[in-house]
Amino acid sequence: MSTIAGGIFTSHVPGIGQAIAKGLKQDPYWKPFFDGWHTVHDWLKREKPDVLVCFYNDHGLNFFLDKLPTFAIGAADGYRHEDEGWGISGYKPYPGMPELSWHIIEQVVHDEFDPTMCQKMLVDHALAIPVEMAWPDEEESWPFKLVPIAINTVQYPLPSPKRCFEFGRSVGRALESWPGDEKIVVMGTGGLSHQLEGERAGHINIEYDTFCMDNLSRDPEALLQHSSLDIAELAGSQGVEILNWIAARGAMRGSVTELSRNYHIPISNTAAATMLLENHETVLA
């Protein structure tokens, strides 16, 4: 049987990719953020997951506003990152696992979710950068197969936090019922508090971020008390990317413990965080 070993939760600021490219991991501005990954690297070396299920939001690479799905599940043989408008590309391609993608799609539709099913899908920096952070030493190819799941955090109305959590639970049920013996890690990217646009640009909310981090492992349903618009007000208009965290946490249905947490301000305009949570299967009596 497959196992969900844990979850990685992290910001996906585009500038992180540029810092990696320029070799700035030890630079005083960047070091406090990069240092938050050591425990993740040790854990990944120990656990060696075979599959990555990544919840993220597309920023106008694969999807445009002409057709914008609330939930989209990749079901391709492989995925690529491409130029998003800043001339940055060249991340290694990601091998897919379409048989698991379709298994997830079957489960979530059975659970009355209505995802868009994507046999072709480009993945943007919101997936590429966290993967680069988590597996920095892979020269040739990635050691995992990918199932990307994109959640709309761009065009209102956004799905509610409760809906995202339940969607994640449904994905978790699919992973638990997968008959293969793969070890799976889930990832939720984006956040924490930040706002790029408007007269309130630069907004950061330490108190709300801390509330989210404190509850992510032990009481994730506490995060569901706010609407998506409440979160936009609390965490900033891009702070709503925490919906990806909420969905990824939903997919971890066992006994969950926090292994590490890093919270640093600022990375670009963002309160940046990285958290590692372990998932232990609940043993049925």
């Binding site: 761009v154 065009q155 209102y156 109305p157 706002q195 646009e197 408007g198 007269e199 309130r200 640009a201 907004h203 618009l229 936009a232 007000e233 900033g236 208009s237």
Partner: peptide, 12 residues
């Protein structure tokens, strides 16, 4: 509509 000062809710 919900007004969040200094913030542009990207709705329909």
């Amino acid at each position: 509509k919900r007004v969040i000062p200094g913030t542009y809710v990207f709705d329909g």
